[in-house]
Structure formats: structure tokens, C-alpha cells
Nucleic acid binder design. Sequence first.
DNA 1: ACGCCCATGAAGCGTTGCTTCACGCTCAAT
DNA 2: ATTGAGCGTGAAGCAACGCTTCATGGGCGT
Lengths: 303, 303
Amino acid sequence: MLDVRRLALLAAVVDTGSMTAAAEQLGYTPSAVSQQLRRLEVEAGQPLLHRQARGVRPTEAGAVLAGHARHVLRRLSAAEADLAELAGLRRGTIALGVFPTVASALLPQVVSRFRRQYPDLRLDVRSTRFDELVELLENGTVGIALLWDYAWNRVDVPDISLTPLLDDPTVLIVAADHRLARKRFTTMSELAGEEWIVRAHDHPVAEVLERSCRAAGFTPKIAFEANDYQEAQAMVSVGLGVALAPRTAVRNPNPDVRVLALGTDVPARRVLLAHRQDRLRAPAELAMHQLLVDVAREYQTKP
Amino acid sequence: MLDVRRLALLAAVVDTGSMTAAAEQLGYTPSAVSQQLRRLEVEAGQPLLHRQARGVRPTEAGAVLAGHARHVLRRLSAAEADLAELAGLRRGTIALGVFPTVASALLPQVVSRFRRQYPDLRLDVRSTRFDELVELLENGTVGIALLWDYAWNRVDVPDISLTPLLDDPTVLIVAADHRLARKRFTTMSELAGEEWIVRAHDHPVAEVLERSCRAAGFTPKIAFEANDYQEAQAMVSVGLGVALAPRTAVRNPNPDVRVLALGTDVPARRVLLAHRQDRLRAPAELAMHQLLVDVAREYQTKP
DNA sequence: ACGCCCATGAAGCGTTGCTTCACGCTCAAT
DNA sequence: ATTGAGCGTGAAGCAACGCTTCATGGGCGT
């Protein structure tokens, strides 16, 4: 393969008409240029320059080669420009993986701010289950994923770096006409007699309920298993029972229910930012990373 | 400037989907490929490949860069192909400088054979005076020039390499009704009483005449100075005198004159092939060089 | 005739890029 | 569960390459 640096030298020499001028332009000594061009001529098997008293002139082969060199150099510049655009966040794609509840709470803010701050970047959001999120992260389909865990079961995936974003406290949902509906705060021990709405029995919130009730000294009576938090709220609203939920899941509650804070003894869900720990990360990923940290902090302070 | 060899590596890796496969394809060890790609990533400031358990996959930046790489490689191949075409005499131009008398004698054969042998090469012929030929040769306008000289004034130009092509003996031109017209051969001593047609008095043939007559013991009487050999023949044909000429100049003589050979004591013109002694010569020049040597040899043996 | 500009050469030094050898990991077959 | 094949990666070392420095020679303009 022809050496492109030599070709660049040739093009400069042909343009300037002199080896010395080309050397100066490219920051070399004339000797280096002369040596490289000689090698290029040997490689080419034919002379590329006519040596004249005053500078040099390309031969036919030299002119042809210089023409190709210019094209190659242009293309290399374009490649560098593309890299610079990707690095400068004026181009590129960031794929973000999220789970449904955080999607509805945090994402509107994330998306709108991202659009404003990086109008040239493309943002792909995929919302799916926890385990698929990890998979997407591992095979590079998404650059960043939002995950969650609870204190008794911390997420730990090899080669995945985690940054806690926010604590998502567990709250109590009661019907608007519930005896506690006018309070802003309560504790588990107040709820010993309640019937409970949970999501699927294998859903983490069910375990939160189990543990909290056990800590408060009673066993919850499960009245209904809902498929999502909308359904859970609906059941609560008609007085079928009360429910626990991460606060982000009830940012905009059903008007017929009330949301009460619980003590810190009730486990909180933790939301984490996850990415593969590559030694080098795509600029767009770094940008999204920072943006998520910012949005989460603001969300935490003024919910 | 991005290193094209690294880009080639990247393209191969992206194509094959594996560093090892790319390494094998390009004759490197996997380790070398891995090291080079890592450097390229550092240069790019962002990851180019997603390392997976089974091979690798390009990131967005990697795909972009690989695309540019493919263009660059194509262009380099085209450049090499062009050089090969020039070297393989399937393309290119050869400029030949000649002087008028050899042009008419040797050139038809040269041109027709060149056309036949190298149909893809372009042939430029420039016919001009001796000193301008040297100039054209020195500044590269022509790659090969045909020159001539006489024994007493050998051509010698610095940095110009000379190859004798043929000896062009001096012949005698007489009118068809001249007393020697029926002979094929004569000597200068037979011509002591003649009147002479010469070309310009500073023309070399005038000096040939001077020297030959002096050697034969007489001084020529100049009857006319002609501008070219056609004019000289015309003057001879009407009996104004006899003339000397290089044989190649009267290949197709005027029907009203006769051409006689002279002894070897009359100086012969020497025709030479001249080229700049570059350490590397264009393939088309080498081809033309050889062709001229061949044509000259044949011309010499069966004129 | 002088100085200036240009291309070029030999020698030497620093960098680079490769190979070799070894390791850790994942997947699939036994 | 174990083994083996395939893949990427790392440290060390060696050879080649490309540059600089210093010096030479030729042609041009003042």
C-alpha cells in the first residue's frame, strides 16, 4: 500500500513547486522531504518529479499520483471532521435504556433538556424490563441504562459501572376517603389492619411490603394483585385496600387517591445509572451521563 | 493526520467482525491489531469497537471511520493501478524531440511501430533545432531527443546520457545528366572541378565540404546557399552544381538527381539518442528508447 | 564574483510497530 | 462440571523507519 504521508508530501511539493517550500509548510526539513520522495519514486517504479534548477515539476506519474493524494487527504480530513463532530456533540446517537416507572417520571425532563442542549444529537430511548436492560447494556445496544435496586439486593453486574442517581422512597397510596387521607405522613405500624393491593407477588414492591410489615410486627393481607401502578391506584381509589409504591411511580396520582410519606424504616428504591466500564466512552454517552445526574439531583431536591 | 494503515485495520476488523480474522487476513498477529486499534481509539478520542465475547462490533464512530477508510483504500488502490498502468505501458505519454532530416527518414517507421506496439500510449513529437532540443530535454518537456554530431565536434551536455543510434554517411548529389550520374560511388578527388551547393555557410555540411575538399587537396567553389535539402536538390537538378548531404536527408531524392556514395574519408554524421540521466526513467521513455535502438539498427542494415 | 536558494547525501538517534509469549475470558461440546 | 477452542489483551524486546543535523554542489540573480 502506498504510504499516505509520502503522498501528502508529494501533493505539497507539487502544489508549492519546491521541496523546501513543502518542507516548511509541513514542518519538516528539506532533507526529509527529499528522502521520502525518493523512496516514493522507487515504490512507484518511475520518476515523479522533474528536478530543475529552480524547484521541481511533476512528471506525468507525479501529477496523477498527486491528484489521488489530494482526494485521499480530503477524505481523511472529512473523517477527522466527523470524529470532531462526534466528540463535539454536534452529531451522533445516544441510546438510553429505562424501565417504565422512571420513564414516566424522569424522562420528560431528560428528553426536553437533552433536545435543547444537544439539538444535533439523536436520542433513542428503550423502555423494558430490568434483565433485558442489562443485556442491552452489555451488547452495546444502549450506552446508558437506568436500573434500580433495593438495599437487600444490590445490583452488581461485572464490567458494569453504577452511579446512584436518586433515592425513590416508598409511599403509601390510600383512597381519598380513607381515614388517613388527610395526613401527609404515616408509619407502617398504623397500617396493621389494612388490606393491601400489590403488584405481582414476585414484584419487588411485594417484598418491600413483606419486610415492612414484618418489621412493624404484622403480616399483610393481600386483597389484589395489580398489573401496574395505574391499576393499583384504581383499586385503591374504590376502597379495595391501600398500596405501597415508589414515589416516582405516582408522580401524577389518580385524583381519587392520596399519597402519604412513610418513615425511613420502609425500604426505598434506589435508581442507578449504569454503563459499561470501557476505558473510553463515547462523548454523547458522557453528555447524557452528566445530564442524567443533573436532572436526578434537581428531581431529588424539588420533587 | 489519521494513520491510514490503522484505518485499513479498522475496516478489515469491521468487515470480518473479529480482530483475529482481520489480523490473519492482513498478515499480522492479533496482538498487533489490538494494539493499533487501541491507539486509533485514543487518537479518535472515543471508542470505535464494542468488545463482545465473540469478536467485536463497531460503535457509531467506528462505523463512520470505517466508511471513510474504505473510500481512502479504494483511492489508494486506484493510484496503484494507475502507476501499474503507467509502468505497464497501458497508459502514459512519451514526448520525443527530433530534428527535421531524421524526422522524415526514421520517424515514419518509429511512429507506426510505436502505435502498433503500444496502442494505449500517447506519442508527442516535436521537431526543432539542435539547441532547442537540448533545452527541451533539460527541462523535461521531452523525455528523449534525437541529436546528431560529427567526429570533430562531439556533443557533450552535462547530465545528458547519449546512445549512438546510427552513422549517417555523407553522400553526393548530382544532376541526373551529370557526368557521374550513372555511377554508384565516387571519391572527393574526382570532384575537384565542381561547383557546390551548400546549405547555410554556418551549417555543418558546409564544414564537411570544407574538410573533405581540403583533404582531397582542393578548395570548393560555392555556387549557392540553400535553405534546406529540398532546395539544394532542386538547384543540383538544374545543373547549378553538386552537393553533399547526409544520406538520411535524401531518402526519397528528387527524380532529377542522383545520389552517390562517397568514401569513408568523408565524415559521417552520427545520430544519437539523448536523455537526461535520471536514476529512474519513465517506463514509456524506456520503451521508446528501445524501440528507437531497434529501428535504427534495422535502418542501418537495410537502408 | 559573490551570496542565496535549492536539492541531496551520510551519519546518528528516537520512535514506532511488529513479534513472541503468556494470560483471562466466554462459549460449546464432552 | 470440565475441557478445549477462539478471542482479545498485555509486557518485553527487537528491527526498521523517519527524522534531524551537518555538509556538499549546482544554478540564478544582484
